[in-house]
Protein backbone atom coordinates (compact mmCIF):
# COMPACT_ATOMS: atom_id res chain seq x y z
CA UNK A 1 0.00 0.00 0.00
CA UNK A 2 3.03 2.19 0.38
CA UNK A 3 4.26 2.08 -3.21
CA UNK A 4 2.01 4.93 -4.43
CA UNK A 5 3.21 7.09 -1.55
CA UNK A 6 6.79 6.53 -2.62
CA UNK A 7 5.80 7.28 -6.20
CA UNK A 8 4.29 10.61 -5.18
CA UNK A 9 7.35 11.52 -3.12
CA UNK A 10 9.63 10.63 -6.03
CA UNK A 11 7.52 12.70 -8.44
CA UNK A 12 7.50 15.71 -6.11
CA UNK A 13 11.24 15.36 -5.73
CA UNK A 14 11.76 15.31 -9.50
CA UNK A 15 9.54 18.37 -9.97
CA UNK A 16 11.39 20.32 -7.26
CA UNK A 17 14.73 19.41 -8.83
CA UNK A 18 13.46 20.57 -12.20
CA UNK A 19 12.29 23.90 -10.76
CA UNK A 20 15.70 24.50 -9.22
CA UNK A 21 17.55 23.32 -12.31
CA UNK A 22 15.67 25.59 -14.70
CA UNK A 23 15.78 28.57 -12.37
CA UNK A 24 19.56 28.26 -12.12
CA UNK A 25 19.88 27.71 -15.85
CA UNK A 26 18.03 30.92 -16.69
CA UNK A 27 19.94 32.92 -14.11
CA UNK A 28 23.26 31.61 -15.47
CA UNK A 29 22.30 32.32 -19.07
CA UNK A 30 21.06 35.77 -18.11
CA UNK A 31 24.30 36.52 -16.29
CA UNK A 32 26.25 35.45 -19.32
CA UNK A 33 24.34 38.01 -21.41
CA UNK A 34 25.11 40.80 -18.93
CA UNK A 35 28.74 39.76 -18.84
CA UNK A 36 29.07 39.73 -22.61
CA UNK A 37 27.49 43.17 -22.78
CA UNK A 38 30.09 44.52 -20.40
CA UNK A 39 32.77 42.94 -22.60
CA UNK A 40 31.59 45.11 -25.49
CA UNK A 41 31.68 48.10 -23.17
CA UNK A 42 35.26 47.33 -22.13
CA UNK A 43 36.45 47.24 -25.74
CA UNK A 44 34.58 50.43 -26.68
CA UNK A 45 36.13 52.13 -23.68
CA UNK A 46 39.61 51.05 -24.77
CA UNK A 47 38.93 52.51 -28.20
CA UNK A 48 37.71 55.79 -26.72
CA UNK A 49 40.90 56.01 -24.66
CA UNK A 50 43.04 55.84 -27.79
CA UNK A 51 41.15 58.58 -29.67
CA UNK A 52 42.81 61.70 -28.13
CA UNK A 53 46.26 60.29 -28.84
CA UNK A 54 45.28 59.53 -32.42
CA UNK A 55 43.77 62.97 -32.99
CA UNK A 56 46.93 64.61 -31.67
CA UNK A 57 49.15 62.54 -33.93
CA UNK A 58 47.06 63.11 -37.05
CA UNK A 59 46.72 66.86 -36.42
CA UNK A 60 50.46 67.28 -36.60
CA UNK A 61 50.41 66.20 -40.26
CA UNK A 62 46.92 66.95 -41.52
CA UNK A 63 45.93 70.32 -40.18
CA UNK A 64 43.15 70.96 -42.66
CA UNK A 65 41.02 67.95 -41.81
CA UNK A 66 39.20 69.66 -38.95
CA UNK A 67 35.79 68.27 -39.82
CA UNK A 68 36.82 64.66 -39.45
CA UNK A 69 38.77 65.35 -36.28
CA UNK A 70 35.74 67.09 -34.85
CA UNK A 71 33.51 64.15 -35.77
CA UNK A 72 35.67 61.63 -33.96
CA UNK A 73 36.08 63.87 -30.92
CA UNK A 74 32.32 64.42 -30.77
CA UNK A 75 31.65 60.72 -31.04
CA UNK A 76 34.03 60.10 -28.18
CA UNK A 77 32.32 62.74 -26.06
CA UNK A 78 28.94 61.19 -26.85
CA UNK A 79 30.28 57.80 -25.82
CA UNK A 80 31.70 59.04 -22.53
CA UNK A 81 28.48 60.93 -21.83
CA UNK A 82 26.18 58.01 -22.60
CA UNK A 83 24.62 56.46 -19.52
CA UNK A 84 22.91 53.39 -20.95
CA UNK A 85 24.39 50.68 -23.12
CA UNK A 86 22.20 51.60 -26.09
CA UNK A 87 23.63 55.10 -26.21
CA UNK A 88 27.13 53.76 -25.80
CA UNK A 89 26.70 51.31 -28.67
CA UNK A 90 25.33 54.06 -30.92
CA UNK A 91 28.20 56.42 -30.07
CA UNK A 92 30.61 53.52 -30.49
CA UNK A 93 29.37 52.96 -34.04
CA UNK A 94 29.76 56.64 -34.85
CA UNK A 95 33.26 56.61 -33.42
CA UNK A 96 34.14 53.64 -35.60
CA UNK A 97 32.88 55.40 -38.73
CA UNK A 98 34.78 58.57 -37.88
CA UNK A 99 37.96 56.54 -37.30
CA UNK A 100 37.49 54.87 -40.65
CA UNK A 101 37.46 58.22 -42.42
CA UNK A 102 40.59 59.26 -40.52
CA UNK A 103 42.42 56.21 -41.79
CA UNK A 104 41.04 56.92 -45.25
CA UNK A 105 42.44 60.45 -45.36
CA UNK A 106 45.72 59.22 -43.95
CA UNK A 107 46.31 57.75 -47.40
CA UNK A 108 46.88 61.32 -48.63
CA UNK A 109 49.64 62.04 -46.12
CA UNK A 110 52.65 59.80 -46.72
CA UNK A 111 54.53 61.32 -43.78
CA UNK A 112 51.68 60.47 -41.44
CA UNK A 113 51.59 56.91 -42.72
CA UNK A 114 55.28 56.61 -41.97
CA UNK A 115 54.82 57.82 -38.40
CA UNK A 116 55.64 55.07 -35.93
CA UNK A 117 53.09 56.23 -33.40
CA UNK A 118 50.34 56.42 -36.01
CA UNK A 119 51.06 52.93 -37.29
CA UNK A 120 50.94 51.51 -33.82
CA UNK A 121 47.66 53.25 -33.08
CA UNK A 122 46.24 51.99 -36.36
CA UNK A 123 47.19 48.42 -35.51
CA UNK A 124 45.83 48.69 -32.02
CA UNK A 125 42.54 50.18 -33.21
CA UNK A 126 42.19 47.46 -35.84
CA UNK A 127 42.68 44.81 -33.12
CA UNK A 128 40.10 46.54 -30.93
CA UNK A 129 37.64 46.61 -33.81
CA UNK A 130 38.08 42.85 -34.15
CA UNK A 131 37.47 42.40 -30.45
CA UNK A 132 34.36 44.56 -30.56
CA UNK A 133 33.05 42.35 -33.36
CA UNK A 134 33.82 39.20 -31.37
CA UNK A 135 32.24 40.66 -28.24
CA UNK A 136 29.07 41.43 -30.23
CA UNK A 137 29.13 37.91 -31.62
CA UNK A 138 29.42 36.41 -28.15
CA UNK A 139 26.59 38.64 -26.97
CA UNK A 140 24.36 37.33 -29.74
CA UNK A 141 25.50 33.76 -29.04
CA UNK A 142 24.51 34.24 -25.39
CA UNK A 143 21.13 35.60 -26.44
CA UNK A 144 20.69 32.60 -28.73
CA UNK A 145 21.29 30.05 -25.99
CA UNK A 146 19.07 32.02 -23.62
CA UNK A 147 16.26 32.22 -26.19
CA UNK A 148 16.61 28.54 -27.01
CA UNK A 149 16.30 27.77 -23.31
CA UNK A 150 13.20 29.93 -23.03
CA UNK A 151 11.53 28.59 -26.15
CA UNK A 152 12.26 24.86 -26.10
CA UNK A 153 10.06 22.45 -24.15
CA UNK A 154 10.16 21.73 -21.20
CA UNK A 155 12.21 24.84 -20.39
CA UNK A 156 9.51 26.98 -22.00
CA UNK A 157 7.04 25.91 -19.28
CA UNK A 158 9.33 27.04 -16.47
CA UNK A 159 10.33 30.18 -18.36
CA UNK A 160 6.75 31.38 -18.53
CA UNK A 161 6.33 30.59 -14.82
CA UNK A 162 9.40 32.60 -13.94
CA UNK A 163 8.30 35.37 -16.30
CA UNK A 164 11.33 34.97 -18.58
CA UNK A 165 10.84 36.32 -22.07
CA UNK A 166 12.83 36.10 -25.26
CA UNK A 167 15.49 38.76 -25.59
CA UNK A 168 16.40 40.80 -28.60
CA UNK A 169 19.54 40.33 -30.62
CA UNK A 170 22.07 43.08 -31.04
CA UNK A 171 21.63 44.56 -34.49
CA UNK A 172 24.88 45.13 -36.27
CA UNK A 173 24.82 48.33 -38.33
CA UNK A 174 24.57 47.51 -42.00
CA UNK A 175 27.71 49.32 -43.11
CA UNK A 176 29.74 47.58 -40.42
CA UNK A 177 28.58 44.23 -41.76
CA UNK A 178 29.70 45.09 -45.27
CA UNK A 179 33.27 45.79 -44.16
CA UNK A 180 35.50 42.88 -45.10
CA UNK A 181 38.11 41.62 -42.68
CA UNK A 182 41.32 43.41 -43.65
CA UNK A 183 44.83 42.57 -42.57
CA UNK A 184 46.64 45.49 -41.06
CA UNK A 185 49.28 43.57 -39.27
CA UNK A 186 51.25 40.95 -41.06
CA UNK A 187 53.76 40.60 -38.32
Amino acid sequence: MLWWLWLIIALVFVVVIMFIYYYNKFVLLGNRIDNSLSQIDVQLQKRADLVPNLVKTVQGYAKHERKIMQAVTDARKAFLGATDIKGKLKAGNEMQNALKSIFAIAENYPQLRANENFLQLQQELAAIEDKVAYARQFYNDSILSYNNGVKVFPGAMFASMYGMKEKEYLKIPTEAKAVPKVDFDEE
Partner: peptide, 16 residues
Amino acid sequence: HRMLFNAAESMSIASG
Protein backbone atom coordinates in the same frame (compact mmCIF):
# COMPACT_ATOMS: atom_id res chain seq x y z
CA HIS B 1 53.98 38.49 -29.64
CA ARG B 2 51.26 41.06 -30.00
CA MET B 3 49.48 39.21 -32.80
CA LEU B 4 49.25 36.09 -30.62
CA PHE B 5 47.87 38.08 -27.71
CA ASN B 6 45.30 39.78 -29.95
CA ALA B 7 44.19 36.46 -31.43
CA ALA B 8 43.94 34.81 -28.00
CA GLU B 9 42.08 37.79 -26.53
CA SER B 10 39.66 37.80 -29.45
CA MET B 11 39.02 34.08 -29.10
CA SER B 12 38.56 34.29 -25.36
CA ILE B 13 36.01 37.07 -25.89
CA ALA B 14 34.24 35.06 -28.60
CA SER B 15 34.08 31.94 -26.43
CA GLY B 16 33.39 33.70 -23.13
